[in-house]
Design a protein around this nucleic acid. Sequence first.
DNA 1: ACAATCCATCAAAAAATTCGATGCTATATA
DNA 2: TATATAGCATCGAATTTTTTGATGGATTGT
Lengths: 305, 305
Amino acid sequence: MTTPNDPGIDPLSIDFRTLRLLERVHSLRSFTRAADELGLTQSAVSYAIDKLRHVFGDPLFARQGRSIHPTARCDKIVEDTRHLIASYRQMAHPPAFDPATASGTFSIACNYYERALWLPGIVHALRARAPGITLNIVDAGGTGPQRLLDGEADLLIGPIDRDGPLLHSRPLYEETYACVMDPAHPAAREPLSLATYLHLDHVLVTYGGRWTSRYITVLAEMGHDLRVALRVPSPAGLESLVAGSDLVGTVPHRLSRVLGQSIHITACPVPTSITIHTAWTALNHRSAQHIWLRTLIHTLITQSA
Amino acid sequence: MTTPNDPGIDPLSIDFRTLRLLERVHSLRSFTRAADELGLTQSAVSYAIDKLRHVFGDPLFARQGRSIHPTARCDKIVEDTRHLIASYRQMAHPPAFDPATASGTFSIACNYYERALWLPGIVHALRARAPGITLNIVDAGGTGPQRLLDGEADLLIGPIDRDGPLLHSRPLYEETYACVMDPAHPAAREPLSLATYLHLDHVLVTYGGRWTSRYITVLAEMGHDLRVALRVPSPAGLESLVAGSDLVGTVPHRLSRVLGQSIHITACPVPTSITIHTAWTALNHRSAQHIWLRTLIHTLITQSA
DNA sequence: ACAATCCATCAAAAAATTCGATGCTATATA
DNA sequence: TATATAGCATCGAATTTTTTGATGGATTGT
């Protein structure tokens, strides 16, 4: 019938369906009934058992007149098989992510703007709902997507222009620019026109690296150039720079509102806006933890934005 | 790409070759190199991974420019997979039978003849080589194969005429019949002719049930009938029945030699012989323990027969 | 004896896998 | 900046595996 260690068949070519079939035949003591239960023909069951017979080098079942009797080896194989299938099922079924008991680290790349506006809310929610997760904030710098691709961050929050390759993203809200200045500034008396804006002396927030703010790009496309008196890498402390000076700063509108009470805020006359997104890579796209966290963050931000 | 819990594909349809493929891709960080190693094309590997992606609802690997990076879920799956494959391999590989440490029960069906001749040797060898195995001797009765088919015995030793269905057997040796009588018996003076044999008064061993000894069958076919003065169910004590009487007993030749010194033994004139076999069912045909035991018994008996 | 049950087997059909070739994207190089 | 290269995805064709439906052989129960 079969020789032990039959070289003609690779034991690894057995799949879990075939193992389940073996288990059912063993339990039901019948090829025919197992076939019915599994929605197959008796013939297919016979074929599958025959394959298993070659793989295990054992007859597995011997006919005893009208019924079949498993061999001792078959009993043992079936017992092992039950554990094997259970393990595999557990492996194939992703355990539902439970924030309350979850542990791990989650890295967010963003810049001063997002940290100032949204980080407190995120941290607060996370401590309450998923206290086991360590939050790691890295500076997005001028090139946010690179943080994701390099594996330094799991989620990027910021203005994404291109929906580049390998990058999933979801828009949060649209942001406009605002100008901040000393309340005593002459230009603070009425809404700012583009002409006036271009004649003022500016404090420019460069955001460190090679990033160029959208309003600068738009101005350049219009053929205009900003009179820059001071360049700073971050909006932090911008309030004290414009207070008591004639300098004007341009920052996202929502940010201007948290810079301090002592400054005058008015709409920026450059006709453009940016859209803030969350973004991540394919690596995390299906991760239960990541889905939960990015959804949480998306909800928090869009609800208060 | 893929939706979690994709209903279109049965997770159980994954086989162990595919899991090994996943493991290799994960280790080598390359579809192409895994394909080379497994003797497949990159295309086949891509197909297999795609199937796994649907089953697990996870991209498993994300392209990072020129190379690939596994997802966290993939790492975990691969780790589980290694255990799964190891367990399966152990299950598929029949553990070599080690007599010295083996335990269990082994049932032999046979009759007085085999017990008297061979059981001491079998017991002796088994105690020495496989002390953990319990030997269980059951009477074969008139219908030996039935003991096997009923599961009452693992091995039958005895004269098998038919190589019936579901029954494996291996011949041990050929046995002839001998006549035993009192040394003072008139017929003991010269070789026994068939004519003389038929005129003697016999003690017939019936072996209990419905069994008919071969020499009886042959005599009947020849149209002869035996003059039976006494019927006994077993050859045990036959010596004392023929000693000091005019009765003649017919038993297998080897058995006659262990009945006692005080009797005369001569060849039985009925022209026939029987062949002693070991026999077993398909249930035990591939069992390592059974193969070892029946080979041991076969060797013991043929070496001293 | 006779019908019924049940697994084995065979040829044909259906499904899954593999191959070879090509496409597409992201580096690396000139 | 353009080009070459490496590497996975995808497509149709070829191959292999699985399933089916029909049939055979053996055993049991009536």
